[in-house]
Design a protein around this nucleic acid. Sequence first.
DNA 1: TATGAATGAGTTTTCATTCAT
DNA 2: CATGAATGAAAACTCATTCAT
Lengths: 205, 205, 205, 205
Amino acid sequence: MVPDAAKASQPGKHADILCAALRLFADRGFHGTSIPMVLAEAGVGASSLYRRFPSKEALVNAVFRDAKQRLASELQASFDQALAPRALFAAFWTGLVRFARREPDAFRFLELQDHAAYLDAESRSLELGVLAPIYVACLDFQRRGVFRADAPTETILAFIWGAFVGLFKAERTHHIALTDAALDAARDACFRAFSAGDPALPGPR
Amino acid sequence: MVPDAAKASQPGKHADILCAALRLFADRGFHGTSIPMVLAEAGVGASSLYRRFPSKEALVNAVFRDAKQRLASELQASFDQALAPRALFAAFWTGLVRFARREPDAFRFLELQDHAAYLDAESRSLELGVLAPIYVACLDFQRRGVFRADAPTETILAFIWGAFVGLFKAERTHHIALTDAALDAARDACFRAFSAGDPALPGPR
Amino acid sequence: MVPDAAKASQPGKHADILCAALRLFADRGFHGTSIPMVLAEAGVGASSLYRRFPSKEALVNAVFRDAKQRLASELQASFDQALAPRALFAAFWTGLVRFARREPDAFRFLELQDHAAYLDAESRSLELGVLAPIYVACLDFQRRGVFRADAPTETILAFIWGAFVGLFKAERTHHIALTDAALDAARDACFRAFSAGDPALPGPR
Amino acid sequence: MVPDAAKASQPGKHADILCAALRLFADRGFHGTSIPMVLAEAGVGASSLYRRFPSKEALVNAVFRDAKQRLASELQASFDQALAPRALFAAFWTGLVRFARREPDAFRFLELQDHAAYLDAESRSLELGVLAPIYVACLDFQRRGVFRADAPTETILAFIWGAFVGLFKAERTHHIALTDAALDAARDACFRAFSAGDPALPGPR
DNA sequence: TATGAATGAGTTTTCATTCAT
DNA sequence: CATGAATGAAAACTCATTCAT
């Protein structure tokens, strides 16, 4: 009668909790969100949560990994090593934009908050795992002379990521208009910032 | 000395509280910091705090304004409209770096946390006040053809600020080395990103 | 085999639950033991327990009766009315020792804890039932001039039982060595304490 | 106006809490007593308790030490080394009885419960400290030939203490009448149990 | 019948804030 | 004006018990 998979704990509840927690964590941060808030938002009892996540810390880490994983998938999908540098960078940028637009809560939670206090080793390594391919691509660009070699690769990475995050933070905090055109302009600025071959590339021209 | 002024609440205590609160808020965020923690760190009694700041929210706003004000001063001091664009930008960047280095707690509190939930109108307007002169300078650069005109000024601002913050966030989160050379390279990249006169400017030349 | 009997609730599970509960109650007391602990220790699901014992109180009473019953059996087996007083007392003492050694959990649970709060009428009457034959034997000793008559029988009973329990409590609490020799010495002291024929009996002589 | 000592936290409250906790712990045990119960019984708010006792465990330990200390005082007051053995033992016994009668809650809590799970090192050492002088007196009795030497001193101690506790436990559990005469008879039985000089001592006769 | 997921009241403990001194 | 004890509401988490499967 009932589909067999529904026998054990409804899988939907797991997702409901993660989703409610993400929404609240994104809005109010980890410490600003209480478990009762999550329970109310998810519409479950206390034990339904604690059966799945042994503590509030375990819950944030699960939320973090879940969201980071989706961001990673988005980026991986956008990443086609066969593309020319410029196109590759544009694809990466578009992936980021798509994620920030489609999952604003996840993006705000992941990038606009300081997780230092509660992330565990696995979550931290997942975060590095997401950055690694970008780092490699960046390094490759530098080796191939696409990007300048006068800045450490990590610096370039931090710069680009920070610039991107800054745009969305300003949209949220200062209510600036973040049109597609503006995002495209920022993307080109970003590429230009580290571009090695001066005369050739700039602008859409 | 100060026989009369000392009668009223010791002015040192005000600073002690702000300082202790800043340290804690920077480390653990607003919601992660309790009033008792602040009392212990500042070494004062509960009423000494509540006499000066009617609530925890009032305190965090005071801390925010105090820190933001010091950042504003730093930037204003670095800002000499008479300088050539490149030098002006370098001075601005140096001011930011100096602030982030001299007052790491203030910088982390101001820029690495999401204050959306508790900032009041006055704090928010102060924040805009800090950005305004930079906005104006940016706009001026665009008008004078120093910066490209194909990106909205707010976007440029958000980008630059975000890139800068991203560097320090990576230093903290991923423990990347943020040397002076790296910061200089980032500064040049930033300028280059929006520079209008393509081939001419890049590099230290 | 047992094709029909096995259809009803497996009898082994009943014992598993009682056994697990006894172990835990002995170690941590009634209030210090949670049902989930019992379930985990017994390796059964919640409903397997609640089908057999309608509540936690019912469970503890069942555990109590079960253990008390085994103690009663032990004592009954040791009790041979045909024996001479001294030998009878020694047999009784040996029975107690054997029980305390063979079932330390049961002994600790029964004698080292205060059950006042949760024992029901039936459990209480069972407890009295265990003491009754000893009471009778004691009274008989007094009537026959074996035991002094200057102490109420109940007092003698409480004294002896208390002394015995005190030995094992000290073994557990203060880690004193409770050798067979020490137990024998205590047994003789106990008999001597209430012995009527003063000069004649003491010692193995 | 107010006596100077009353400036800081009312000392009465400390006592109120200890007293309420003792009453409840005596009745329902440590795990069976909740903090709200203690708060209600003592008529104080949660923080008044937690300001003085950092945790529930700290509270039981304080209650335990407080009660044990009073028992120790009672015993010390009864102990006059100058007395003849028999009189010394009687004085000790009387001290115990007086304590059990005057502070039934303290006695029940101290002696009728298993504290193994939560007593800390200091509480445990206090308990040993109370027993030590009795141990020494017992050993002295054995050396002087007052008590038999065929039982280990610890065994004698555990026996006597256990017998005494057994009497009061039976009074409470089985509602036996524990008259002064019965207690005197028990005292004499106790002495007799370990008495070395057979013919001389027994009974008031 | 057995399972173990679900519930919500209850646990210990801490918080922001007030008030007597 | 400063102190820090007091408060009661909430925090995170666990419990005894029930119920759908």
